[in-house]
């Protein structure tokens, strides 16, 4: 028996000839804030849904707090709270009724549970809509309901499958504040998101999936620091033209991006910054400011996945 919160053991899933997951194995430590990243179609949702019991893996095992999701599904479902990617509604019941019904599935009722439901409604700014039907809600509100539904049984492991997709800034902040609080209380958080800056700021460790295979599994800081490039941004007091670099091929070869009066060079980390400065001095660029930074998670991601899809 493993001590990890979640252990994926050689998990494969095939839909006909399409191999959605190809022997994925890794562990998520207890209490971690873990990011599961990958391009569209990488297999993230298949993996998450396999863990939650919505998808049956073709082979392999998934353990949640040591319990097998197939053999001991009652235990694993009690310990997992999944916020699914797709918006879900139920035209027959109000939000509060849905939360009470969902509690019932887990055998939870009474005043303590009612208090928790009230707290969830409060924390997710749903109190005013508690008696509203989900069909009357906006997309953002429906997303909050899904989060409340996932937390109604106080799961140990919380899985958020792109929870901020189509969500406004206010809700995003509310959601992340609440998620951070749950993490601080000891819950394990597994997150997939379209927004890599969110993953970089929140997740201690990330796994990157591509074409159903694990491409990387590192702490976020290690993954970023392992990236072999740094980025040198040069602000100009003139309009930038690519032709300006024709005399300095070393710079031209390292051009990453540019706009009207700003240019970014992607430079090998082992290359001394002095060397870059000397190339810049030799160029006809009229420099106003220079900054250097490490790669972002997004840049690491694009580099690892070969830019297959910039959108997660």
């Amino acid at each position: 028996m493993t001590s990890a919160a979640v252990s994926f053991q050689n998990v494969s899933k095939a839909y006909g000839t399409l191999q959605a997951l190809k022997g994925v194995s890794f562990e998520v430590e207890k209490g971690a804030f873990f990011g599961l990243l990958g391009p569209n179609g990488a297999g993230k949702s298949t993996l998450i849904n396999s863990m939650a019991g919505l998808v049956k893996p073709s082979s392999g095992h998934i353990l949640v707090n040591g319990y097998d999701t197939e053999k001991s599904y009652r235990q694993t479902r009690r310990q997992l709270g999944l916020v699914p990617q797709e918006l879900i509604s139920d035209p027959f019941f109000s939000i509060k009724e849905l939360l009470t019904i969902q509690s019932g599935y887990f055998g939870l009722s009474g005043s303590v549970q009612d208090k928790w439901i009230g707290e969830l409604l409060e924390r997710l700014a749903l109190s005013e809509k508690a008696d509203a039907n989900t069909n009357q809600l906006s997309g953002g509100m429906k997303r909050r309901v899904l989060i409340a539904m996932a937390l109604v049984h106080k799961p140990d492991v919380i899985v958020l499958d792109e929870p901020t997709a189509g969500v406004d800034v206010d809700l995003r902040k509310t959601l992340w504040d609440f998620t951070k609080e749950l993490h601080q209380k000891g819950h394990t958080i597994i997150l997939t998101t379209h927004y890599l800056e969110e993953a970089e700021s929140l997740c201690e460790k990330v796994a990157i999936l591509q074409k159903g295979q694990l491409r990387a599994l590192e702490s976020t800081s290690d993954l970023v620091s392992m990236h072999p490039f740094r980025y040198v941004r040069v602000s100009l007091s003139q309009r930038f033209e690519k032709a300006m670099l024709s005399s300095t091929l070393d710079l031209a070869n390292r051009l990453d991006s540019f706009n009207v009066n700003e240019v970014v060079f992607k430079v090998e980390k082992e290359l001394p910054l002095n060397q870059v400065m000397s190339w810049l001095s030799a160029s006809p660029l009229s420099i106003k400011d220079i900054t250097s930074r490490d790669a972002t998670l997004e840049e690491v991601f694009i580099s690892l996945t070969g830019g297959q899809d910039n959108e997660l």
């Binding site: 019991g53 919505l54 599904y73 009652r74 479902r77 997992l80 509604s89 599935y105």
Partner: peptide, 10 residues
Amino acid sequence: GNLTFVMLSP
């Protein structure tokens, strides 16, 4: 999609 709620429960 609300069958998902039942499927996620024990």
